[in-house]
Lab assay of single mutants.
Amino acid sequence: NKEKKVFISLVGSRGLGCSISSGPIQKPGIFISHVKPGSLSAEVGLEIGDQIVEVNGVDFSNLDHKEAVNVLKSSRSLTISIVAAAGRE
């Protein structure tokens, strides 16, 4: 599966507009579980089932849900590497 990078700058009070969840035991990782229509996440093409592999240089493969949320909230400017639809297989 091809990795792609998206860049998101949080402007004003707009949030990311997506929710994440941890994958099942047999498929660990952090996946996008919800994308709000019209949100920044939707605008850059994030979709439900995409796996987040890295954010701002932080490897997401071994993070738990709480740590992942903290990384996503730690910066107003995010570089997110995803594997599209990895969670839909």
Rank of each mutant, 00 (worst) to 15 (best):
residue 18 C to E: 01
residue 85 A to N: 13
residue 29 G to D: 06
residue 31 F to S: 02
residue 88 R to K: 14
residue 76 R to L: 09
residue 48 I to K: 12
residue 21 S to C: 13
residue 21 S to Y: 11
residue 28 P to R: 10
residue 30 I to Q: 04
residue 49 G to P: 00
residue 79 T to A: 13
residue 14 R to T: 11
residue 24 P to W: 09
residue 48 I to P: 14
residue 28 P to K: 12
residue 49 G to C: 01
residue 88 R to T: 13
residue 84 A to S: 14
residue 44 V to P: 02
residue 77 S to V: 08
residue 53 V to A: 11
residue 39 S to I: 04
residue 48 I to Q: 12
residue 46 L to C: 05
residue 18 C to P: 00
residue 44 V to Q: 14
residue 38 G to E: 08
residue 5 K to M: 06
residue 51 Q to W: 01
residue 5 K to Q: 08
residue 31 F to W: 09
residue 86 A to L: 09
residue 14 R to C: 07
residue 50 D to G: 00
residue 81 S to I: 09
residue 84 A to Y: 03
residue 32 I to Q: 00
residue 52 I to L: 09
residue 55 V to S: 03
residue 43 E to H: 07
residue 54 E to M: 12
residue 76 R to C: 09
residue 28 P to L: 03
residue 76 R to I: 08
residue 35 V to K: 03
residue 35 V to Q: 03
residue 30 I to V: 07
residue 48 I to M: 11
residue 22 S to E: 14
residue 49 G to W: 01
residue 81 S to Y: 06
residue 42 A to H: 13
residue 38 G to T: 04
residue 69 V to I: 14
residue 4 K to L: 04
residue 27 K to C: 10
residue 15 G to T: 13
residue 71 V to I: 10
residue 40 L to Q: 11
residue 24 P to V: 08
residue 23 G to M: 06
residue 20 I to N: 00
residue 89 E to A: 11
residue 83 V to E: 08
residue 24 P to G: 13
residue 30 I to H: 14
residue 77 S to E: 15
residue 75 S to P: 12
residue 88 R to G: 12
residue 13 S to T: 14
residue 82 I to V: 15
residue 38 G to Y: 08
residue 44 V to R: 10
residue 38 G to H: 10
residue 76 R to K: 14
residue 43 E to W: 05
residue 82 I to H: 05
residue 78 L to Q: 03
residue 34 H to D: 14
residue 3 E to Q: 13
residue 41 S to A: 15
residue 51 Q to E: 08
residue 41 S to F: 05
residue 46 L to G: 00
residue 14 R to D: 13
residue 28 P to I: 01
residue 5 K to R: 09
residue 87 G to I: 08
residue 66 K to T: 11
residue 42 A to G: 05
residue 82 I to A: 15
residue 38 G to I: 04
residue 41 S to L: 04
residue 5 K to W: 04
residue 16 L to C: 03
residue 31 F to H: 04
residue 82 I to W: 10
residue 45 G to Y: 01
residue 82 I to S: 07
residue 41 S to D: 02
residue 32 I to C: 03
residue 39 S to N: 00
residue 15 G to N: 15
residue 28 P to C: 06
residue 45 G to C: 04
residue 2 K to D: 00
residue 16 L to K: 01
residue 78 L to R: 03
residue 84 A to C: 13
residue 41 S to T: 06
residue 17 G to C: 05
residue 17 G to Q: 04
residue 15 G to P: 12
residue 88 R to C: 13
residue 40 L to K: 15
residue 65 H to Y: 06
residue 77 S to I: 05
residue 50 D to L: 00
residue 35 V to R: 00
residue 50 D to A: 02
residue 59 D to M: 07
residue 27 K to P: 05
residue 23 G to C: 06
residue 41 S to C: 09
residue 36 K to F: 10
residue 48 I to W: 04
residue 34 H to W: 10
residue 41 S to G: 13
residue 25 I to H: 14
residue 2 K to V: 04
residue 51 Q to R: 12
residue 45 G to M: 02
residue 66 K to M: 12
residue 18 C to R: 01
residue 18 C to A: 08
residue 44 V to A: 15
residue 34 H to I: 02
residue 57 G to C: 08
residue 50 D to Y: 01
residue 36 K to A: 12
residue 33 S to K: 09
residue 22 S to H: 10
residue 17 G to M: 01
residue 49 G to L: 01
residue 85 A to Q: 13
residue 50 D to M: 05
residue 56 N to K: 05
residue 60 F to G: 02
residue 62 N to R: 13
residue 19 S to Q: 13
residue 63 L to M: 05
residue 2 K to A: 02
residue 52 I to Q: 00
residue 13 S to V: 06
residue 48 I to S: 12
